[in-house]
Nucleic acid binder design. Structure first.
Lengths: 295, 295
DNA sequence: CAGCCTCTTTTGTCCTAGACAAACAACGTG
DNA sequence: CACGTTGTTTGTCTAGGACAAAAGAGGCTG
């Protein structure tokens, strides 16, 4: 048998669309149209899985499923917008770095990044190289010119570099910051960038890694006598769930511990009581300065 | 309202038990017994969530749900076995390290680890400190004497240290190894340990980070002209799914690229065609040596 | 008594089809 | 043009039923 097919769990894993969604789309929109195996279970042919992945990518950019599912497969790919990229800072020529990733030259990429780090200093490196590069890689991934594994490799290597830089910084004295993300939020590059900037400012960062259950975040904050809990939400995180999560966490957290939240996922969020929203690096650094003067 | 309660999605997130399982347990065993909100949806009280988490922990150790769900809450905790720990190597006194984590002394822990690294050398450090320590932390987490966030902190700090050490090694010349894990497998500490050992032996390691979709693993292997793809499965990964995943990957992978698999999750696995199972570090290093002599 | 085969029970995942609320778009009004 | 109201879209929840893979139990044989 040379036509491999996917069961519903495999499709959920590969596309990020939940089983419920896959079934309800089939019912409502007539797509996908999986075959059935001897046991009556769905078998998705590879081309449909591919189309579903494309649809998911377009949805992450704001398109709505009702429209996308009516569009034939070959027209879908033309929808891929060349996303408006604000021109990168004049100092940064990122094309070289992007090209190195595209050529799968891990060593060359690491080397080039090290060089830039040395030239720009850690703060400049984060703000003028890592942040815009991450954005460009995200855009490239969205419009399909980067493969998943290329994005992964970039993320992994960059994380390593940042962590390495952080560990070479002296121990802090400022507020004790606990950095983590909630379950189902795996993206930590943004968190690492903030950690770098905060550590540079002399804050005392406690990195807990991603995906900490809410109650454990609260417990950890108490145990570590943290002043601030900092969370990050990526753009891919379902927006609708964020307010509920934050309120629950805010409730579980002692009142004297602040809750700071950043990342691409909170851009369109309305303010919440007792939660400080930090859409960008500048706001984050301001918040840190403000915290210090308040003591 | 001062009795917070969880909807089914929150419980899935916090316990790791799927919605289907939560519903079917309720039907079959009469536990859990969530209330219903105005809309007829389940609301789990916190103590039941806690009990579910305990049950999940015990299941990960091999207990079966049918028994556990019949046991009243207060007797459950007594079931926690003090897991048979093979006595740690004579050279290693890990209690100091464990105590530092338990005291939430991140800086002290990092310092102590650095010292051990300097004393033991990288290979000795991985085999005699990191590996047994990981095992002890896992055991402590299982029997409840470690909190989730303590385990996370340990993992995060240790990952940083290993990555830092890896990056200080010279570029390799040996086989090109692509290291990653499949979707839903987030544990990468084991993978990092292996990467360290392989890098020490001069292999050319390409770390892709965790959770790579199967087809992208195959694409990445081709793009990077890898000789070997190395995967890792933790004990927590559902055993039943592993053979299927490996077969699918093996099929997608060119025949001349080897597939090596390690980690606690494969201990009880039966051999598979075209897949090399590496239950421990020794086997992994042997495999590397064998690969080299074969060329 | 260890190993292997078979039968039974347990257990997770899949199925259908209906319901509803939150988010979004579209419209009318001040 | 801002703002409330109405309609539509969309994800997630619910209920039981079904089945196959895995685990355990028993029985047989070397």
């Amino acid at each position: 048998m040379n036509t491999p097919s996917f069961n519903i769990a495999a499709v959920e894993r590969d596309t990020g669309l939940s089983k419920d969604v896959l079934r309800v789309w089939e019912r409502r929109y007539g797509f996908p149209t999986p075959e059935r195996d001897a046991n009556g279970e769905r078998c998705y042919p590879p081309d449909q899985v591919e189309r579903l992945r494309l649809i998911k990518r377009l949805m992450d950019q704001g398109h709505r499923p009702g429209k996308l599912l009516g569009i034939p497969a070959d027209e879908l790919s033309q929808l891929m917008p060349r996303r408006q990229l604000r021109p990168p800072p004049a100092t940064a020529d990122l094309t070289e770095l992007l090209a190195l990733i595209k050529q799968h030259d891990a060593a060359g990429f690491q080397h080039a990044m090290q060089q830039r780090l040395a030239r720009q200093g850690l703060q400049g490196f984060v703000q003028d190289t890592v942040a815009p590069l991450t954005e460009q890689v995200g855009a490239a991934w969205e419009d399909g010119s980067f493969e998943v594994f290329e994005e992964h490799l970039f993320t992994e290597l960059t994380k390593r570099l940042l962590r390495q830089s952080i560990s070479s910084l002296p121990a802090g004295h400022g507020p004790r910051l606990l950095l983590t993300s909630v379950p189902n939020e795996e993206h930590v590059l943004g968190l690492l960038m903030v950690e770098t900037l905060f550590a540079l400012e002399g804050a005392d960062c406690i990195p807990l890694g991603p995906q900490m259950p809410l109650f454990d975040i609260a417990r950890a904050a108490r145990a570590h006598a943290a002043d601030i809990v900092a969370l990050s939400f990526s753009q891919a995180f379902p927006q609708r769930r964020i307010p509920g999560l934050l309120l629950q966490l805010r409730q579980a957290l002692p009142a004297n511990i602040e809750l700071w939240v950043g990342g691409g996922g909170i851009a369109r969020l309305s303010p919440l009581d007792g939660v400080l929203l930090l859409p960008g690096f500048a706001e984050a650094l301001d918040a840190l300065a403000a915290w210090r003067t308040a003591r």
